[in-house]
Design a protein around this nucleic acid. Structure first.
Lengths: 212, 212
DNA sequence: AGTTTGGGATAACACTTGTTCACTGAGTAC
DNA sequence: GTACTCAGTGAACAAGTGTTATCCCAAACT
């Protein structure tokens, strides 16, 4: 029937591939990728160890695939947040709120990213760095047309965007260290996140007069 | 002779303990703690596997000891940097330069901290968080008496201090991703680090008028 | 209908792992 | 000088690991 991606065959393969990814992600909640065993994953899926190789050459490849899953869907979110022209204050509130919501919805994925960003497996680190670099570009592109960005060189704008991105990742990581059922601690993390963004934002808007 | 810590015995024990730490740190250059094997470490030292237990109950304990080694000596540096009352601009230059130098001198230790800060071994993560928390307190204490800090609540000052500390750690981590023999990339990382600190610093000094 | 394809199973390979136990032999205390 | 302490040994334990070769059988192609 369908000429592309048609066939029960391919669908079944995709299904166990996804099962491997899901099981891997679940197991990675309590350990890091470099200590995750191939057999451990296949056992969790209920499949023979050798079957793993039909989908990934090694664990690092599974990790890279997980990076795609975790960060791929975030581009739309960023574009969305940056597009509507709210004033600085409301934009910060919205960004922090969305970050918090995203962490809640994709807890395992975000934890994985935080763990492996500077973790032991090089290809995974590289994949995360590449994806975050793309985020930085997008944020920089969103920042550029704003009036406050007058006088900023593209290079400096990218540094600023990187600061925002790093800050977002740090906030997400901090949010995860906090127990889910401690709303007070959660609120404190969010307060700190907002305050940090505000400081940066004020620094940005007074940048010109400081440079003068 | 000496009544305290005297004895060839204790000295020899301390020596192999240190050898274990050194070997562990060396092996951790290319992997993360959760995948580092006990036998791997003892083999590197040239000692029987069982000997490990005379010094550490498990790998996590060795990791915690490494955290102490890596971050313990940094308190003095922080105090030192913050004490002399340079103007903001020179202080930033100095901070970035010192961070770069520290990374060069303690590459393995810093890499270990970056890896394990959000890594897989809980006690180690906790130890790092505790140490960084102490740094944050020290920085906050150093910030408080400065004239620019008028109108800042202690809580907000701590958030600001945390921002500086996180920024320092991020800079150190970024410096490590750069190949040692690429001075151009190195310079770019340092430029970005300075710029970020400057933005934060400007935000801080204009905070009051923004709040009004 | 007959042939090919390829995801998955099974079983075996050669290691590596953490942990235990009784032991040895220098360093220490009396 | 004798008795004690204890860091390090060597051997054995029961699991665990990644990887390979061979086979099976349903889906896909012709």
């Amino acid at each position: 029937m369908s000429h592309t991606s048609g066939g029960v065959r391919q669908a079944q393969k995709e299904q166990t591939r996804q099962a491997l990814l899901d099981a891997g992600l679940r197991l990675l909640d309590r350990q890091s990728l470099s200590s995750l065993g191939l057999r451990e994953v296949t056992r969790a899926v209920g499949v023979a160890p050798a079957a793993f190789y039909r989908h990934f050459p090694d664990m690092a490849a599974l990790g890279v695939a997980l990076v795609g899953e975790a960060l791929g869907s975030l581009h739309a979110v960023i574009r969305d947040v940056m597009s509507d022209g709210l004033d600085a204050e409301r934009l910060i509130d919205r960004t922090v709120a969305i970050t918090a919501a995203y962490v809640d919805e994709h807890r395992a994925h975000i934890r994985f990213i935080a763990r492996e960003r500077y973790g032991g497996v090089q290809p995974v680190r590289a994949a995360i760095a590449a994806e975050l670099g793309r985020f930085t570009d997008e944020v920089a592109a969103g920042l550029a047309p704003q009036p406050v960005s007058r006088g900023w060189s593209p290079d400096d704008l990218r540094v600023l965007a990187g600061l925002y991105v790093d800050h977002m990742v740090l906030t997400a990581a901090a949010m995860m260290e906090v127990p889910e059922d401690d709303p007070a601690a959660r609120a404190e993390v969010m307060r700190a996140a907002r305050l940090r963004m505000q400081i940066i934002s004020v620094g940005r808007s007074h940048w010109a007069e400081h440079r003068a």
